[in-house]
Simulated scan of single mutants.
Amino acid sequence: MRRLLCGALLVSLGAWWVACSDASTGPPPPAPLDPNRPPTAVGAIQGQSAMVGDTVALTVSSYFADPDGDRLLYDARSSDPGVATVSAAGDTVTVVAVRRGAAAITVTASDPDGPEASQPFELTVLNSGPAAPGRIPDLELPLGQEATAEVSPSMLRRGEAAALTWADVEFWSDGSARVTVRRSKSDQDGNGATLYVGRDAATELRAIHGPDASPGAPVFGLRTGKAVSKRIGKAARAAGLVGRFSGHSPRIGMARDLVASGAGVAAVQVAGRWASPQMPSYYARAELAGDGAVARFYGEE
């Protein structure tokens, strides 16, 4: 009897061990999904420099990679919007130089699930355009200086004024003139632009042209943009104007005059050949405020 009981007990324990062993060898649990990996920075975005009013556009997709092959979304921030503003559309980051200084631009790439990577670069704005109170008035100055002041309504940049030759000037029968800018910093392909010169300025140009002017001679007798800035500053001081004036001052002053006369920002942008409306809006901000909703509300426009 004792042997029978021991045998039955052993059989029961063996059956329990087999049942437990069979349960432990069932199908394995599903493998966990691969975690979403963040994008990574590739290389480094080089520092950029620009003149006041310039627009710098960068394609940034080559500076980031996503190990999972996810489509990346891009954003950008400026450390100092007073020096440079920035926006992102697709994989293009556009920076507008506002005033002289330096700003850190941070570009961020993120995938749809949230992980992100960032790349900074520095934008250096090389010059500032002082805000002129208006267009430099007609001056009684030696030949050349007078024409330099008068031609400002055409909104020439200082380098364009220095490069202007008599071959680029066409006098019209109505007393006005046209000048051709063959290349500029906003026209690196050399497509050219034709600018209007009013009758008063055209009269001064005729006076300094003379009968023996060579087509290739510089209109203002100046070879560099720096020399143009110096002449404008000297003319402003001779006129008794207060403030600091440079080669950019006539463009700013004319932008303000145009807005004050009722021209829209888009029209001023075209006239000044700016790449975007930000700069004329910034320069003429006081005039725009004077014609804005609050001024209209008070009936003071």
Rank of each mutant, 00 (worst) to 15 (best):
G198D: 10
G198A: 05
R199Y: 02
D200E: 12
D200W: 07
A201V: 14
E204H: 10
L205G: 10
L205Y: 06
R206M: 08
R206D: 07
A207V: 15
A207K: 15
A207C: 08
H209E: 09
H209Y: 07
H209M: 13
G210Q: 07
P211A: 15
D212E: 11
S214C: 11
F220S: 05
F220A: 08
G221H: 10
L222E: 02
R223Y: 02
R223D: 09
T224I: 12
T224W: 10
T224C: 03
T224N: 01
G225E: 06
G225I: 08
G225W: 02
V228D: 02
K230P: 00
K230R: 12
R231P: 12
I232K: 03
I232Y: 02
I232T: 05
G233Y: 07
K234I: 01
K234R: 14
K234V: 01
R237G: 05
R237D: 04
A238T: 12
A238M: 05
A238N: 09
A239I: 09
G243I: 07
R244Q: 06
F245R: 06
F245N: 04
F245V: 06
G247M: 02
G247V: 05
G247T: 05
G247I: 06
H248K: 07
S249H: 11
S249V: 11
P250M: 00
P250I: 00
R251V: 10
I252P: 01
I252Q: 02
G253Y: 00
G253T: 08
G253M: 05
G253I: 12
M254D: 09
M254H: 14
M254W: 11
D257F: 03
L258G: 09
V259A: 04
V259N: 04
A260D: 15
S261A: 15
S261P: 00
S261D: 11
S261V: 07
S261G: 14
G262D: 06
G262R: 13
G262S: 13
G264L: 04
V265F: 14
V265N: 01
A266I: 15
A266F: 10
A266Q: 11
A266E: 12
A266M: 13
A267K: 07
V268D: 06
V268A: 06
V270H: 03
A271H: 14
A271W: 11
W274F: 11
W274H: 08
S276K: 15
S276C: 01
Q278K: 15
Q278I: 14
Q278Y: 13
M279E: 05
P280T: 12
S281R: 14
S281C: 02
Y282S: 02
A284W: 00
A284Q: 05
E287M: 06
E287Y: 01
L288P: 02
L288R: 09
G290A: 04
D291H: 09
D291Q: 15
D291G: 13
A293C: 01
A295H: 13
A295K: 13
R296C: 03
R296Y: 00
Y298E: 01
Y298D: 00
E300I: 13
